[in-house]
Amino acid sequence: MTSACCGRLPSVDATTPAVLHLPASLGRHEVVALCEDVRVRLVSGRAEVVVCDASGLGPPALTTVDALARLQLAARRAGGRIRLRDPAPALRALLDLSGLPIELEGQVEQREPALRVEEAVEPGDPAL
């Protein structure tokens, strides 16, 4: 991870994602600063993914979804992406309801099914 020796600067493993701890409230000024932080972390080349730790967020609201959408947009513009860590069940439900495709930490990436693949149906199978 990091090492400090002989007065040199510490080296950082670029494969380790940067972690951004989200504050309890996400006002307009906080979101602007967080977006800039995400952009700087990704543009500097230190990470391809910024993990947003949502464990400290307050009760979820549409402003929270808006803030996460803005963070995701800032990350994509910088050539990276964000991943949400430890969201509350209510926030997960709100994200599902809003349709905002935010990657959750520990979630298997969903892919489109292969084209031109058909399932075989046996004559005795019940209809679904």
Rank of each mutant, 00 (worst) to 15 (best):
G99M: 09
P59Y: 11
D53P: 03
R76I: 03
P59M: 12
A47P: 06
G45I: 04
P17V: 01
G58Q: 09
L73I: 12
V31D: 05
R28W: 12
A61Q: 15
D37A: 14
R39I: 03
D53F: 02
D37M: 08
R46Y: 12
S55N: 14
R70I: 04
V49H: 00
P23D: 12
L104A: 07
P60S: 01
V65W: 09
E105I: 02
D86M: 04
S44P: 05
H29F: 05
P89R: 08
D96M: 09
D37L: 11
T63W: 10
L42Q: 11
D53S: 01
L62T: 06
A78Y: 04
V40I: 14
A61K: 12
A54S: 01
L34P: 01
P87W: 00
A47G: 03
L95R: 12
R28K: 14
E48L: 10
R28S: 15
L34Y: 02
H29L: 13
E109H: 08
L22P: 02
L100K: 04
C52N: 07
A47S: 15
R46V: 14
P87R: 00
A88F: 01
A93K: 14
V43A: 11
H29V: 12
L100R: 09
G27A: 15
P17F: 01
G80V: 03
L97R: 10
A93F: 12
L68F: 02
C35H: 00
G106N: 08
L57A: 02
D86G: 02
R76M: 03
E105H: 07
R83M: 14
V51K: 07
R41D: 11
R39W: 04
R85F: 00
D53K: 00
A75H: 07
G27I: 08
A69V: 10
R92C: 04
R28N: 13
G45M: 04
R83T: 14
V31C: 05
S44C: 12
G27L: 10
C35A: 05
A78V: 03
E109N: 03
S55Q: 13
R41C: 12
R111I: 14
V65P: 13
L91T: 05
A93M: 11
L22V: 01
S44T: 13
E48Y: 08
A24E: 06
D96Q: 08
G79K: 01
L26Q: 06
L100A: 09
L73C: 14
A78K: 05
A61L: 10
D53V: 01
V19N: 07
A24P: 00
A69L: 15
L95H: 08
R76N: 05
L68K: 03
G99C: 13
A24T: 04
S98L: 05
L84P: 03
P89H: 05
A33P: 04
L34W: 03
I102M: 08
R70D: 07
P23N: 10
E105W: 05
D86I: 01
R70L: 08
E109W: 03
L62I: 11
P101S: 13
I82H: 13
D96N: 08
P60Q: 00
A61E: 14
V43C: 10
S98G: 11
A93C: 10
G58W: 11
G45T: 02
L34R: 01
L94Q: 07
V40Y: 09
A88K: 06
T63Y: 06
